[in-house]
Simulated assay, not measured.
Amino acid sequence: MIYFRPSQQRGHVNIGWLNSFHSFSFGHYHAPEHMGWGLLRVINDDTVAASAGFEAHCHRDMEIISYVLEGALRHQDSTGKTSVLKAGEIQRMTAGSGIVHSEFNQSPEAQVHFLQIWIHPNERGLEPGYQQRQVPQQGPLTAIVSPDARGNSLKIHQDVVISRLQLQPGESITLPVGSRAGYLHMIEGSAAVNVVDQPLGPGDAVGIMAATGLTLSATADTHLTALWFDLPAFHHPA
């Protein structure tokens, strides 16, 4: 099974201080055919203006991952955690039984660009928690979030591994799927894939399930960065 999600077809909200693209239904953007890919519920591509941000609000029973691509994000939450998330750093917040948090652009001059990702947890009512770190790249595919905190990755309360994929121009890789499901979200660069008959660019995504794998080849003139989600298989309505 193949699910192709072109960047230009994502939901889009621009309210001045926030310019956001939604891969799946979120907030005022409701698309019944795009409610997530298995346990992966949200990927929001957010750009926040200088000194602006998300006021304090509450979440429950969700694993929330933020990955800053540009700028710096100031975090505060009801557990007492205060931090600044810089470009290249990853944040994992367990909302669990309930957490109140705010996220603001640290800079009075420059925008902040980050991905906000939601994963359904393996248990409800978990104790709220927080982790943050930069995970150095080790080869083309590096786990940044995993259930067993492998390598230097952050721990998630679910059978999901999120890896950062980086390829040099012209380099190829096959991402195994087997009996599980996978989801590729492009961040920068362009690539050809074996399951879609057009090149992928920033913001494009492909979901795959019950298949040998996904083969990805970076174009000859660009460095490629993407996120690869290794997920349990699930029932997808026809």
Rank of each mutant, 00 (worst) to 15 (best):
A87F: 02
H235L: 00
G36Y: 02
F4R: 08
H34P: 00
A233Y: 02
E103C: 03
V177K: 06
N105M: 02
E33A: 08
Q138S: 11
G27H: 02
A192Y: 12
L227K: 05
R150V: 01
L39H: 05
R124C: 07
S7Q: 09
M1C: 11
V193C: 08
N152E: 14
L154P: 01
P199W: 13
R5A: 05
G38I: 10
T215F: 08
L200S: 10
V160S: 08
H28I: 13
Q106W: 08
P32C: 01
G203I: 06
V206W: 06
T219G: 14
G129T: 10
E109G: 08
A205L: 00
V195L: 12
D159H: 10
H22D: 03
Q131D: 11
E55P: 11
P108Q: 10
N152C: 04
I15Q: 03
R164E: 14
T225L: 03
P108M: 02
T47A: 14
D197P: 04
S102I: 02
M35C: 01
S7A: 15
H101F: 11
I64K: 07
G182L: 07
G203W: 09
H235R: 07
S153Q: 07
N105I: 00
V161Y: 03
S83A: 13
G207C: 04
A192F: 15
N14E: 09
M209E: 05
S97R: 12
D221K: 11
L175I: 12
V68I: 04
H235G: 06
S20N: 03
G129I: 11
A181K: 01
L227C: 05
M186Q: 13
A218Y: 10
P202A: 14
S83W: 05
Q8S: 11
L115K: 09
P128Y: 14
A211Q: 15
L115H: 13
A31S: 08
I15H: 01
E63Q: 13
H101L: 14
V160D: 00
L231M: 09
A191Q: 13
I64A: 03
N152A: 10
D46S: 02
L126R: 11
Y67R: 01
A220V: 12
L167C: 13
D77L: 12
E188P: 07
N44W: 01
A191Y: 14
D204A: 14
I144A: 11
Q132F: 06
S25M: 01
G71F: 04
Y3I: 15
D61K: 02
H59I: 15
L141F: 07
D204T: 07
Q166H: 12
E171V: 04
A238G: 09
G71E: 00
R164P: 04
S83Y: 00
